[in-house]
Design a protein around this nucleic acid. Structure first.
Lengths: 212, 212
DNA sequence: ATTTAAAAATAACAATGTTAAGTTAACGAC
DNA sequence: GTCGTTAACTTAACATTGTTATTTTTAAAT
């Protein structure tokens, strides 16, 4: 069966196929519930063959997450062309939240599960490349809005603003993803919570004149 | 060896011992990494005996988390005696964040790991009892501040305010806990991020006059 | 044609959650 | 007292998992 000697390109095809199968299962069943055997079966290999392409399950997850961060960045890229810095910022944020809420397992996998710290030295993502690095996009978007003077004058560090907004939006997504079904809490409708969070951020960060 | 016929009180002692051992290990090693055998050894029983007290690992985790939610509520209780509604709200929030950041594994176990939804009908926590239910404390604290008129007049739903503030603070804690060591991100100092988040919430929610 | 080694599969291992099958000894009935 | 009965517990055992060791297959190199 093994048609020996795969070109590096052919190997990449298999690698990608494994990652796609893994992502599909991770997203639908959660990372924990997915076995290497299941991934292998999905892609038509034996379980042990996966280890020829990924050293272990953690590395496979890491690779999938990396690829998805790039995808998120490419998705967010569409908002970067908005010329008005304020609108660009708002759309960017909305896009991010929408991604998290419509792809909960995706989001959980990327930002809520404990995985190996992402080492820029070994990542497949090119740091600071706005095509791939969603975090650097965020920094850029906030920084340009900051230069445009939309934030309160007391706020002097765009990076800090960015990290605060990210945290706020992340909290919204994370609680929804983890506790939406918890009968304990009488959640307000999701849209109302999104709206309230956006509103709080705007009133908390922007100049008064900006959001009349 | 088995000294037959334990009173219900004695059984409760064993149950608690198991939960304490489990919590200790969960917190130091993460829920995933802890085996039933390890918990059993810690408490001096065989692994299978744990199943006489908890139907499975998920239920054990659920019981531990429930107990810790009560502990959190009791810890937060100290702030409830502050007479000024605004100060009470602020201290309550600060207390919560401090808990999350100084007990990261605890916090992760309680709010960031996937576990069985908490069913009020079967929980050991008494819902709406301010001694035990931290969420109801939050609602109360925000509602009384709302009645005191500290929030912007456009904000008409104290529950929505509470859920928004919780999400914001949770995002702060969650990102710190999961991504603090990620070399990708040039995190601002933790205290600065806490301060910035608190400030954003206040400016975003409070009447102008409240925070001069 | 024979050798070599890449690519894959099969067999196998240790660890884990969990269940089934014993084992021990305190209590009640006589 | 002794004799079952049964609660409390232990030891065996199982299925599943991630992973490694071994073996098979087969395209290319000689």
């Amino acid at each position: 069966m093994p048609p020996k000697v795969k070109t590096s390109a052919e190997k990449q095809v298999v690698r990608t196929a494994i990652m796609d199968a893994a992502r599909e299962l991770f997203i639908h069943q959660g990372v924990e519930a997915v076995t290497m055997r299941a991934v292998a079966q999905q892609v038509g290999y034996s379980a042990t063959s996966l280890y020829l392409y990924f050293s272990d399950k953690d590395q496979l997850l890491r690779a999938v997450v990396d690829a998805d961060v790039i995808k998120l960045a490419q998705s967010l890229k569409s908002t970067l062309s908005i010329s008005d810095p304020l609108q660009r910022f708002l759309q960017f944020g909305q896009h991010y939240v929408q991604f998290g809420l419509t792809n909960p397992n995706h989001y959980r996998m990327m930002f809520m599960t404990q995985h190996l710290p992402c080492d820029p030295a070994f990542s497949s993502i090119e740091q600071n490349n706005p095509e791939q690095d969603a975090y650097s996009q965020l920094i850029d978007v906030v920084t340009s809005a900051w230069h445009a003077g939309v934030f309160k004058p007391t706020l002097t560090d765009p990076v800090l603003i960015a990290q605060t907004v990210w945290a706020a939006m992340h909290g919204l997504c994370a609680l929804q993803i983890n506790l939406a079904d918890d009968a304990w809490i009488n959640w307000r409708p999701l849209e109302a919570r999104v709206q309230a969070m956006v509103s709080m951020c705007m009133h908390g960060l922007m100049k008064e004149t900006t959001h009349e």
